[in-house]
Design a protein around this nucleic acid. Structure first.
Lengths: 231, 231
DNA sequence: AATTAAATTTAGACAAAACTAAAAATAGAT
DNA sequence: ATCTATTTTTAGTTTTGTCTAAATTTAATT
């Protein structure tokens, strides 16, 4: 390979693996200059701590993370920027899959994991435009703008809402396939109106009104559903 | 990695590099049980013959190519099937980029080279459906169906058409960026009606009527434009 | 048929990204 | 403050896909 390309690769071009590390570190909170341990990263990525150490050095070399031996890693400004651009792509592709290709929300993650690594600024900007610049992905998570800004929605876990409070379902905390499939089966979707009718002290289960219909849900479920309170 | 996965990887899962080799061998004619030399493949892929030899062995091991030392490679049935599925994805993505995201036809190839490797049968079938099952890509090349069938259109190079013959521009032979940009600049597009008015013996240039307007084009251009003759 | 030129393969090396096992550093508990 | 358990790093190995240089085979020419 040409010398110039070796240089570019070493300092500018991101590999898929590097992008995945940055994304994981961001999700573990490494964007707030908090140090994330190699163990935590390894566990999240289902890899070994020694592999994380290797990558930490490489990312530090590129100026994407701060890495101090035995002290874990945190993202630099440049690292945050890069992580957000990958998360932006991931979430926009998820919206695309649901809105334009009728994927169900439990199917999108795996495919978006691949699509997020496609390198073309024009492509993702056009997808953004096609979707009319959505602010949230199918799980209710906010989509960063092109310049890396995004706003977490003012939301509460359903399990923490007061009796008689009303709101709209805006997101999920657990976005695993089994949970999403459960919600589908029980016809619970983002945008649904919710009113808390009653709480059962014994098992913390809830009686709620969902789009007018009265149903009962367990604490497990209620503590993984985000609701935006009506003012 | 688990033993099962090693097995899957060795015999079933395709890497990006393997897919690119299969595609190249197909494009060089290796689908018609014709032997393609390692040199030809290396040149096309801008790599070295020794690298091709390595890959030839691996693909043979997977049953995707027939490889005899010093004799070159040809695709097996399984290899053709795989190559066609990659070409199908490439061409469908090209249509998507042009039709849905307003890419110009000289911009699509590079991005489609990445998108063709996304692994999701559902994704590409849904894209196919969204595009209403197109038969040709933006350069006029046929898109294989899901079961690997495709029909080359009955077409002729513009340079080979008789004087006074009429037809419709249906494809390009050279799909390089400079040529496509040239066509754009001169407002020559697929679907345009064409009538050959006159041939210049001296330099083989043509006088043609394009969508009613009379223009002159060089032999270079005419021998890279495909036309479907009107019956 | 022998010789030479070209094409192809082998052998050995490298970089990326992972791993294992062993060594080193840190943190917690007494 | 020391010892121990845990965490983290180092060192060395593996796999994939590439490369160079050397060796081998094929093809072409006389």
């Amino acid at each position: 390979m040409l010398n110039k390309n070796v240089f570019l690769k070493k300092y500018f071009l991101m590999t898929r693996s590097e992008e995945n590390y940055l994304k994981t570190i961001f999700h573990l909170g490494g964007g707030d200059s908090k140090s994330i341990t190699t163990n935590a990263i390894a566990e999240q990525m289902e890899t070994k701590p020694s592999s994380v150490t290797d990558m930490a050095k490489k990312l530090a070399e590129k100026g994407l993370v701060n890495y101090v031996k035995y002290q874990g890693v945190s993202l630099t400004n440049s690292g945050v920027k890069t992580a957000l651009s990958i998360i932006r792509k991931h979430r926009l592709w998820e919206v695309f899959l649901v809105e334009k290709l009728d994927f169900s929300w439990d199917e999108v993650h795996e495919v978006a994991e691949q699509l997020e690594h496609i390198k073309s600024e024009k492509l993702i900007d056009k997808i953004d435009e096609l979707l009319n610049f959505p602010k949230y992905d199918p799980h209710g998570d906010p989509i960063p703008t092109k310049d890396g800004k995004f706003q977490e929605r003012d939301k509460k876990l359903l399990s923490e809402m007061a009796i008689n409070a009303t709101g709209v379902c805006v997101g999920v905390k657990d976005s695993s396939v089994p949970f999403l499939k459960f919600l589908d089966k029980n016809k619970i979707a983002l945008g649904n109106s919710i009113k808390v009718l009653d709480k059962e002290d014994f098992d913390n289960s809830l009686r709620i009104q969902l789009e007018g219909k009265e149903i009962r849900i367990s604490h497990q479920i209620a503590s993984n559903l985000y609701v935006k309170k009506n003012d």
